[in-house]
Amino acid sequence: MSNHGMTKSSVGRKILMALSGFFLLFFLLQHFSINMLSVISEDAFNSVSYFMGYNPVVQFVLQPILIFGVVFHLAMGIKLDMENRKARPVKYEQYNGAANASWMSRNMIITGLTVLAFLGLHFYDFWAHEMNEKFIEGGANSFANGGNPTRFFHELQEKFVDVWRVIIYVVAFVLLALHLLHGFQSAFQSVGFRHSKYTPIIKKLGNVYAILIPLGFIFIALYHYIDQLN
């Protein structure tokens, strides 16, 4: 039996792509829930952010897992897409892709790479800032000392003063929605979960998730922008 390993076979990689996708779906929901707190209560947002930012388990166990998940999903996505292009070296003169598949399903690499570009900005905005605050500029002991537990809400609001950044957020989340409209239900198919009763429910749930969560992130960005207009 030729077991050439999950990471080397096409079906194995597709399953891994789906599993990392599931993980990112779960993470996104968690991220959204915390962000939503910033609209509801400044204090609650600060205390949860402080916990996420200074709890050693979150910082040194969960955060590396998350970074691995993101890097794996995108590196594998790019690799698979490159292989797929190689599988058809001579292109069709006429190819009617819209006749048999949705735009979302055919352009996962485009929507995915746009989300990646946004992640670059997002890491610069928040993650790099956090690392600097906790480990570099803040001094060697600033993480251990716990830092300022009430800085997070203010730091969040600062990011949404510039209208251009808000526009970038909106565009990125629209593309994320398109990515999820295919990705959510596709991940279930990839791990082999298909059922005459549950698959239609998963597809509907996927559409709800893919639209509501990005819309919620857009709402949060707009809320903080408008909140600071006066």
């Binding site: 096409s10 797929n84 599988a87 055919r106 996962m108």
Partner: peptide
């Protein structure tokens, strides 16, 4: 395994 050796692409569930 043979499908992969032949050089077919990967499935992205476009349907």
């Amino acid at each position: 395994h043979q499908m992969d050796i032949e050089g077919f692409g990967n499935c992205t569930n476009t349907g």
